[in-house]
Design a protein around this nucleic acid. Structure first.
Length: 443
RNA sequence: GGCGCAUUCGUCUAGGGGUUUAGGACGCUGCCCUCUCAAGGCAGAGAUCACCGGUUCGAAUCCGGUAUGCGCUACCA
């Protein structure tokens, strides 16, 4: 909806459809607003809360009742439940049996607050024209008398949506495919009010790995969780835009401006898309690598600070570290684990890791000779260090790989790290020498 | 059960009668690069275009049916 509005120059209006009191969740609206803001999806009007306009929905509901197009229903939930059970037992299509349809006003002794139901036509067809799926035909006989206004005074989605879309002059209803089978009700409602319906476009759904509608049970489904995991909003937008839409047969990495410029309903596909986390991770990595080193550093800062609360994290120091891990991170949240040895001198490794495939004697020799060579280094620079150390490997008849490996573990505490000498340069002479000597002690 | 929608590599997709021995991307495998890990480069495996029938000189592309999947079937959205 946002891409479409931006592409066409229309208005993107944010509306909060909070008409279900029973399922109301504290803070849920804030999550939605935060998510949209984080993604950069700005809105031109709103947010409009449906819960603030209950009087209007009631008026429209009662208007239909007075015109004979809707009616009060006094059936208890117990009766409705029993009816449904019976229908299922008899393999009948479940649906309201229209018990109150011809009751007339006030002709009931039931004390329960009534709901308002729509009088669906008993015969005929309703045709909807969908911008993505074409003409879809529904038999009116398959539609039951659905509820418009609940007994608690709140409207159902069907009523509120139609009243609001008309009131707010909505031109295009673009929603997930799960709404397609409700659309004939909406078309019928527009007709009952005598209003021109908007255009409909039912978008392909987003699926979980099991190919069912993506939901909470599939794990992270709140955009904010991706933010907190260190996905970049620009990567998120790019990835999401490609779920059910494509520019052509090749282009995948696109700026938001490019996507807006090229987004059309014609290129939206009909088939649901499985959310492919591995591809999102790859794409996020692409975006991380495309960041300037400074920008990357700045974005890492909160993640490193949160994960390493005991460390004092200086921005200047971080700026020197960040470039060493920029092309190694797929998400920002993994950066702390990649850089923690820069902030703590307590390295946790055993001599087995230190030696690698070499024996203790060789490892000790490597450390001793390296320490000696490094003491002669005047400028603590990666290039100078490498020039001083690399020849030592040859002297011991070893390849650079295993030789450097010992030093790597001694300096970083792990077998995989950013390039050794760049890392040592950032770490500084004092700490490196101390770590090398500590490693020798360990042997 | 009823109604609806969909069906191209494991996944995201291109392609909408001949340009297709079905293209790209993720992932996977191998090689190269290389101080490790990444990144990058190259190569490869992977789709009888769900199935059956029809139309046509010719169908992944058009039509019909079947199957499968998914969605809806609430005083949920």
């Amino acid at each position: 909806n946002w891409l479409f509005a931006r592409h066409t120059g229309g208005a993107f209006i944010l509306r909060i459809e909070d008409t279900d009191q029973a399922r109301k969740v504290e803070g849920a609206v804030e999550v939605i607003l935060e998510s949209l803001q984080w993604l950069g999806m700005d809105w031109d009007e709103g947010p409009v809360y449906q819960s603030h306009r209950l009087d209007m929905y009631r008026e429209y509901g009662e208007k239909l009742v007075s015109e004979g197009k809707a009616y009060y229903c006094y059936c208890s939930s117990e009766r409705l439940d029993a009816m449904r059970q019976e229908q299922i037992r008899l393999k009948q299509p479940p649906g309201y049996d229209r018990h109150c349809r011809d009751l007339g006003h006030g002709k009931t002794g039931s004390p329960a607050a009534p709901v308002i139901r729509f009088k669906s036509p008993l015969e005929g067809k309703t045709v909807i024209t969908d911008l993505i799926r074409g003409e879809v035909v529904f038999e009116n006989s398959t539609l039951d008398d659905f509820v418009l206004l609940k007994s608690d005074g709140y409207p159902t989605y069907h009523l509120a949506n139609i009243v609001d879309d008309h009131d707010m002059k909505i031109s295009h209803v673009m929603r997930a495919e799960e709404w397609l089978s409700s659309t004939p009700r909406h078309v019928l409602l527009y007709a009952a009010f005598g209003w021109q319906p908007p255009r409909f476009a039912h978008l392909p759904m987003i699926l979980g790995p099991d190919k069912s509608k993506l939901s909470k049970r599939h794990g992270a489904t709140s955009i904010n969780e991706y933010r907190d995991s260190g996905y970049l909003p620009e990567a998120m937008i790019n990835f999401l835009s490609l779920l059910g839409w494509s520019l052509d047969d090749k282009t995948e990495i696109m700026t938001c401006e490019q996507i807006i410029k090229n987004f059309t309903i014609e290129r939206v596909s009909k088939t649901a898309a499985v959310f492919n986390l591995a591809k999102l991770e790859w794409m996020n990595g692409v975006y991380i690598r495309n960041l300037s080193p400074q920008e990357f550093s700045v974005r890492c800062l909160p993640f490193v600070r949160r994960a390493l609360p005991d460390a004092v994290i200086d921005e200047g120091y971080m700026q020197r570290i960040a470039p060493l891990v920029q092309e190694r991170a797929k998400v920002l949240s993994e950066v702390p684990a990649l850089v923690d040895f820069f902030f703590s001198d307590k390295l946790d490794y055993n001599s087995l890791l230190l030696c690698g495939k070499l024996d203790k004697g060789q490892a000790a020799e490597i450390l001793t000779r390296s320490i000696h060579a490094l003491e002669d280094i005047r400028e603590w620079r990666a290039g100078d260090m490498e020039a001083g150390i690399r020849p030592l490997a040859e002297g011991l008849g070893l390849k650079a790989g295993p030789f450097f490996g010992v030093l790597r573990v001694a300096v970083t505490g792990r077998a995989a790290s950013p390039p050794l000498f760049e890392t040592m340069e950032v770490l500084g002479r004092e700490r490196c020498m101390a770590r090398l000597k500590a490693a020798l002690q360990k042997l």
